[in-house]
């Protein structure tokens, strides 16, 4: 009779349950440590990218196909991680996005701090929006999120709320771009919208893209998407949303007022001092063969917001 010897494991060698459960983050930590040796700034935290599937809203389907995901997640402006387009993809994965809270405050009846899990419980939908950067390139992105006005309904803005101010996280340890000897811009990054713009059904509080939670370089865990404005208006990695009576000065306006106005609506007839805005390059096209559309193609929905306004003066 064959004798099978069952090896006995001394209790001291049993892996504690929590270590076993956390083995992925441990491995990610090790990978991060290795990566950190090569790239100072990449820290040990693993990015949290999980499936985030929501029903597609068929009302938002531009004629162009969605940009390749790899492209949209490797070519980003997120100066907190560096000014090169490749920097965010390189350094942002080191940012911890759990736990995460967004403080919603200011001129509201019920100010509240939302945990990211609470935001994920809103009724999410997928919308494919055109995305137009002030640098004259564009992409087409399937976002997952919900209308910002739904969040507003939960906090009940008062009649004094005329503007909404969005603040991006400022995490010195995890953001190499904010540690430069001379600050690239006045951190933290602040953006603003007029209340009617913020409450417009196109304005999306966004938690995911391409059926997954946002990669850090694209503004995880929660960002703004305002498709008829230049990309920099769509602030990333939000920690604070304030309803305010007075118009804020956004970060780019503070940095160069004659170049970046408060509205920054996509407008082929108003040139930026550096770039003609008449045409754009739909990436990865090499030729800027596409003529830019008024309000990035959303004129029908948003032009009434600016009725009677001089858009050249209010650029």
């Amino acid at each position: 009779m064959p004798v099978t010897r069952i090896p006995s494991v001394p209790p001291s060698e049993i892996t504690p349950r929590e270590v076993w459960l956390n083995r992925r983050s441990l491995m990610a930590g090790m990978a991060g440590a290795i990566a950190g040796a090569a790239w100072p700034g990449a820290s040990e935290a693993a990015p949290v990218i999980e499936p985030l599937v929501a029903p597609r809203n068929p009302g938002f389907a531009p004629k162009d196909a969605a940009t390749d995901r790899k492209l949209a997640t490797s070519y980003n402006n997120f100066y907190e991680f560096g000014t090169d387009k490749a920097d965010p993809a390189r350094y942002a994965p080191g940012m911890k996005v759990r736990p995460w809270t967004v403080e919603v405050t200011g001129e509201v009846a019920k100010p509240r701090v939302f945990g990211i899990e609470e935001l994920l419980k809103f009724a999410l939908e997928e919308r494919v929006y055109r995305f137009r950067c002030v640098e004259a390139w564009s992409m087409v992105i399937p976002w997952v999120g919900f209308e910002l006005n739904k969040l507003a309904a939960a906090v009940e803005p008062t009649s004094r709320a005329k503007y909404v101010i969005f603040t991006t996280a400022l995490k010195r340890e995890e953001m190499p771009g904010v540690r430069t000897p001379v600050p690239v811009i006045d951190w933290p990054y602040v953006e603003g919208l007029r209340i009617d713009e913020a409450m417009h059904p196109l304005t999306l509080l966004t938690l995911g893209m391409y059926g997954e939670t946002l990669p850090n370089q694209n503004g995880a865990p929660v960002r703004l998407v305002v498709p008829w404005k230049y990309g920099f208006k769509s602030a990333k990695s939000l920690v604070r949303i304030e309803f305010a009576e007075n118009r804020p000065t956004s970060s780019w306006t503070k940095a160069a007022a004659h170049e970046y106005g408060f509205f920054s609506n996509v407008n082929p007839n108003v040139d930026h001092p550096r770039w003609s805005q008449r045409r754009e390059r739909l990436l990865p096209s090499i030729f800027a063969s596409r003529e830019t559309e008024m309000f990035n193609g959303y004129a029908e929905q948003v032009a009434p917001l600016y009725a009677g306004m001089d858009l050249k003066a209010n650029f």
């Binding site: 492209l71 070519y75 387009k85 990865p284 800027a288």
Partner: peptide, 17 residues
């Protein structure tokens, strides 16, 4: 890169060039 794969030049090859 232009002949084989423009994306070797990054997501915005023209800008790189």
């Amino acid at each position: 890169a232009l002949v084989f794969d423009p994306l070797l030049l990054g997501a915005n090859p023209a800008e790189t060039i």
